[in-house]
Structure formats: structure tokens, C-alpha cells
Amino acid sequence: MGDLCFFYHSGNKARRIVGVVTVVKECYDDGDDGGVAVDVAAVGEMRRPVDLAEMKMDDRMKASGFALFRQPRLSVVPVSKEVWERVCELGGGYEGDGSCGVEDEV
């Protein structure tokens, strides 16, 4: 519990990271034919959504081997520290992050 996760829209029209959530209840049986779920709570919206196409065109992201590039409709993929930081950089951080996207600091 407490892990931070990107909130990713995986629809046909818009595949993009739009926010950050935190896990509030770990994996449990969702009662749907052996499916499982986790409960999350909103942390904050990205200051600017980060589209999948934009991430795929970014040289630093290309080199990351990010699993989302191979299977863009996955619900859960691991995110390395380097990918997390780059997505935050591309999106200007997220509301309430306290560290990503701090271009306002002196």
C-alpha cells in the first residue's frame, strides 16, 4: 500500500497519462470470475497530460524499454524511476507533487 501509480487513459481516442494515484487497498478478488483489483485514491492531475505518442517519440523514453510501448492497453506495468521522472518532466509534474515540475521555485 502507498505506492504511487500513474493514472493512464487507455481508450481508442486518447492514450495518455493524466494523473497520479496511490494504492489504498492491495490486490483482492473482485468477484468477477477470478479477476483481481486494487483500490486507489487520487493524488493529483498531471499539469499537462502526457500522450503515449509523445512518450514514444521522446529519445530518453525510447531507450527505457517501457512496457507500455509494447502493450499500450495494459492496466498495470512497472515504471522505473527514470521513466517516472521523465513522464513527470514531460507533464510538468502533477498537482500536489511537491517535487516534480517545480519550475516555479527560485
Rank of each mutant, 00 (worst) to 15 (best):
residue 78 P to V: 11
residue 3 D to I: 00
residue 95 E to M: 03
residue 77 V to K: 01
residue 21 V to E: 14
residue 53 A to M: 00
residue 18 V to I: 08
residue 56 K to C: 09
residue 67 A to F: 01
residue 75 S to A: 13
residue 53 A to I: 00
residue 42 A to F: 12
residue 54 E to S: 00
residue 51 D to N: 02
residue 44 G to T: 10
residue 12 N to R: 05
residue 73 R to C: 06
residue 88 C to S: 05
residue 92 G to H: 09
residue 44 G to Y: 11
residue 26 E to G: 10
residue 68 L to C: 06
residue 69 F to K: 00
residue 63 A to L: 06
residue 8 Y to Q: 10
residue 7 F to C: 06
residue 102 V to I: 11
residue 8 Y to H: 05
residue 25 K to W: 08
residue 42 A to W: 15
residue 29 D to R: 04
residue 93 G to T: 06
residue 38 V to I: 15
residue 64 S to Y: 09
residue 71 Q to W: 14
residue 60 R to E: 15
residue 77 V to M: 01
residue 13 K to L: 14
residue 10 S to Q: 12
residue 85 E to K: 10
residue 4 L to D: 13
residue 16 R to K: 05
residue 71 Q to M: 11
residue 37 A to Q: 08
residue 75 S to L: 08
residue 27 C to T: 15
residue 21 V to D: 13
residue 102 V to P: 09
residue 48 R to K: 09
residue 75 S to N: 12
residue 64 S to N: 01
residue 43 V to L: 02
residue 1 M to A: 10
residue 91 G to P: 09
residue 2 G to M: 06
residue 61 M to N: 04
residue 106 V to T: 11
residue 74 L to S: 07
residue 9 H to Q: 12
residue 21 V to H: 05
residue 23 V to H: 13
residue 30 D to S: 01
residue 20 V to R: 02
residue 15 R to N: 10
residue 18 V to P: 00
residue 80 S to M: 01
residue 31 G to K: 03
residue 50 V to M: 02
residue 7 F to R: 00
residue 52 L to C: 08
residue 59 D to W: 08
residue 6 F to H: 04
residue 53 A to R: 06
residue 39 D to A: 15
residue 57 M to Y: 03
residue 18 V to K: 02
residue 35 G to T: 02
residue 38 V to Y: 10
residue 97 D to K: 01
residue 80 S to P: 14
residue 50 V to R: 00
residue 57 M to S: 11
residue 69 F to D: 12
residue 25 K to T: 13
residue 93 G to P: 14
residue 9 H to P: 01
residue 55 M to E: 04
residue 35 G to Y: 05
residue 65 G to E: 09
residue 85 E to D: 14
